[in-house]
């Protein structure tokens, strides 16, 4: 089973330990400034009056990410805020708001969100939601994310083949990503995924 969701949908989702206690909830998503991948989360406390927590949750310490909760092993999985020095948070990040350019120099639009592919055992950032520059296009489009790409604060460069795989609904996007990645010569779209018994 695989579910595509926007990283923004994770906001306010509870962070639950394997012992079953909810210790925090997601405040914001942090993207790595180098590659544009998901680096981790900043956290709020649980409850109406709880404020932001000093701790953060690095992506590598996430045990599982499901529709109901973000699972961590225990409280030791949370890290200090210093773990994300140099990375950028949420809307101020490098990726959100970047212009998407193809290699041949066509401006596709502006990134509004990151699309995550949540599987039973693993999660991968597979694409971006963009607001197209072409006003006749649908209001939202999804572009697949290759394994490696160049990002700066200014623009994000995609191969021209990505054009064929732009979709305007999430439903058909999963298959488009798989095809796009296999076209780019990646042997498998999800090498980290364990075979299911």
């Amino acid at each position: 089973m695989s579910v595509l969701l926007r990283a923004a949908d994770l906001l306010k989702r509870p962070v639950v330990t394997l012992a079953g206690d909810d210790v925090a909830q997601i405040k914001d998503v942090i993207y790595s400034s180098g590659s544009g991948e998901l680096a981790g989360f900043t956290l709020n406390g649980r409850g109406i009056f709880a404020g932001p927590l000093k701790q953060t949750l690095p992506w590598s310490n996430v045990h599982g990410l499901g529709p109901a909760a973000v699972m961590i092993r225990d409280l030791d999985s949370l890290a200090d805020r210093q773990a994300f020095d140099g990375e950028l948070e949420g809307a101020g990040g490098v990726v959100i708001g970047s212009m998407v350019l193809t290699h041949s120099g066509r401006n596709l639009g502006v990134v509004t969100d990151v699309i995550l592919d949540v599987r039973e055992k693993s999660t991968d950032a597979v694409g971006y939601e963009i607001e197209p520059s072409d006003k006749t296009a649908p209001r939202r489009q999804f572009v697949p994310l290759p394994d490696t790409l160049s990002v700066s604060g200014e623009a994000l460069i995609l191969p021209d083949t990505a054009l064929e795989f732009i979709r305007d609904d999430l439903a058909g996007f999963g298959a488009a990503v798989d095809e796009f990645r296999s076209r780019l010569g990646r042997p498998e779209a999800h090498p980290s995924e364990e075979p299911t018994p």
């Binding site: 509870p14 639950v16 330990t17 394997l18 012992a19 079953g20 206690d21 909810d22 909760a69 699972m71």
Partner: peptide, 10 residues
């Protein structure tokens, strides 16, 4: 069974 906490059974 892994855990029984105040939020959920894991």
């Amino acid at each position: 069974l892994l855990g029984i906490g105040k939020y959920a059974v894991v």
